[in-house]
Amino acid sequence: MNMLTILKRELTSYFTQPTAYAIVIVFGLLSTLFAFTQGRFWDYGDASLHSTFFVFHPLILMILVPAVSMRQWSDEHYTGTIELLGTFPVKMGSAIIGKYLAAAVVWALALALTFPMVLTVNYLGDPDLSTIFSGYLGSFMVCLTFLAITTLISAFTRDQVVALISSVAVCCLFTILGLEQVINEVRRTGPEAKSAVELMTKVGIFSHFFDATQGRISYTSLLYVFGLISVCLFGTNLALKSQRA
């Protein structure tokens, strides 16, 4: 009940300020821009949107998700409203999940509003809609993971800029570690790099994202995403508690 109250407050805040609209417009523009330039949408003829559209999402999200959520807890510290939340008869966990879910709803909307791309490929060809759906699912998994990382980092500081820079750095690391080009470079250093490559594939977000976008949602990927989210949200709770101790 209290979680829903916080979720509602946060959603209202996103939509009464320019934040939600900025997310939708900037994400829509950037993802389309990437598809038609780097993704070479017209040349590829890829109706699944996998290698022209979805593949760029982690690169956009690693910057945009922290930009939107950097204030999630740092602002509560800065304005002192955490003192109100901490003295209401609610568990801090409800507040953390409520805030997290509100941001997740905004990102789900931002992804959903890229539907003109789906309409375009439907008009131009005969795509497999289930593969496109998997693509969206993969992108949403990336959103949820980056959102959890930003939530955790924003709990440690009252400075939004510090929260932004640190979160972007961590999200970049998770993205870059799984990039094919980076993995290939490491692989080239010799056979002793095999275990490093394995680790990078497991820790980096790209392999899990690719599996999802191609409709292969494995237990490992689910465990990776939901494990990481749980650790981050649990860590947020601990961070908020320890700051009051």
């Binding site: 805040s13 009464t16 304005t79 002192g80 409203t81 955490i82 109100l84 003295t87």
Partner: peptide, 16 residues
């Protein structure tokens, strides 16, 4: 906490 009404020192509020 249900029994208490509390006004913190800095009167924190959600500005939006």
């Amino acid at each position: 906490k249900r029994k208490i009404g509390y006004l913190p020192e800095s009167a924190p509020l959600y500005n939006d």
